[in-house]
């Protein structure tokens, strides 16, 4: 009986093992790249909203973040403003604009506007806005330059790695409390020096309470 495999089959078999390995690794790397891609993380893409609300326009008119996000200083959630807050001004200004029709309809019928969340953390992450605000982390640090976004998008990928960048070294990002809501704040040249001082002053962490402990975010 003739041989089924020629001697060259040995080489092919060896090579195919090698290629299979390369292919598997490449495949896994590819999957990881897709997972990290801006497309999957939904960064830099504005989400569709019932009303094309422009943060840029409203912030540049001098309206403070807290005018609408009323609970950001004392609560875990920053609060999505109620229709009532929109109507504080829009009962008079742009009151016939077709763009604002959903707002007026919500005001008249009492039905909530259904805004789509831009920053949605997984449910196994505990996040509290107020502690960050009160310990000198600026809005811009996580949300990016919202004052330049006509339609707001997610600026950061919200990876755990990204959270830890700051939790490992808060002195790199912390700012004086009175600058937290300042959109134009530029970190000073002596940021590290100032940061270390502020971390101490605001009691950001101590030996029993480190920001990198698991329970800080997973509780």
């Amino acid at each position: 009986m003739a041989q089924v495999f020629r001697p060259s089959a040995n080489t092919i078999a060896k090579a195919s093992i090698f290629f299979l390995m390369v292919l598997t690794i490449a495949g896994l790397c590819g999957l990881d790249l897709i997972h990290r891609s801006p497309y999957v993380r939904y960064t830099h893409r504005p989400k569709e909203q019932p009303v094309p609300f422009s943060h840029k326009h409203h912030v540049n008119m001098g309206i403070d973040c807290r005018y609408c996000h009323t609970t950001v200083e004392e609560s875990a959630s920053a609060n999505i403003p109620s229709t009532r807050i929109c109507m504080n001004c829009h009962s008079t200004i742009w009151k016939d604009s077709p763009m604002l029709e959903p707002v007026r309809e919500s005001w008249q019928t009492g039905k909530s506007l259904e805004w789509n969340r831009v920053h949605d953390l997984p449910d196994f992450v505990y996040f509290n806005h107020s502690i960050h605000i009160n310990k000198g982390i600026g809005c811009v640090t996580c949300h990016g330059p919202v004052d330049e976004m006509p339609l707001v998008h997610r600026e950061k990928p919200l990876f755990m790695k990204w959270c830890l960048e700051c939790h490992k070294a808060p002195e790199k990002f912390i700012r004086p409390q009175e600058e937290v809501f300042n959109m134009d704040y530029k970190e000073p040249k002596n940021q590290l020096e100032l940061g270390r001082k502020l971390v101490k002053e605001y009691h950001v962490q101590n030996e029993n309470n480190r920001l990198t402990d698991c329970w800080i975010c997973h509780r």
């Binding site: 875990a76 609060n79 039905k111 909530s112 259904e114 949605d120 997984p122 449910d123 196994f124």
Partner: peptide
Amino acid sequence: MYDQPKYEPLEQSDFFGDA
């Protein structure tokens, strides 16, 4: 795990009539 059966603040509800 990402979306656990609990409400985040102001999350939409399928249970209540007014959502």
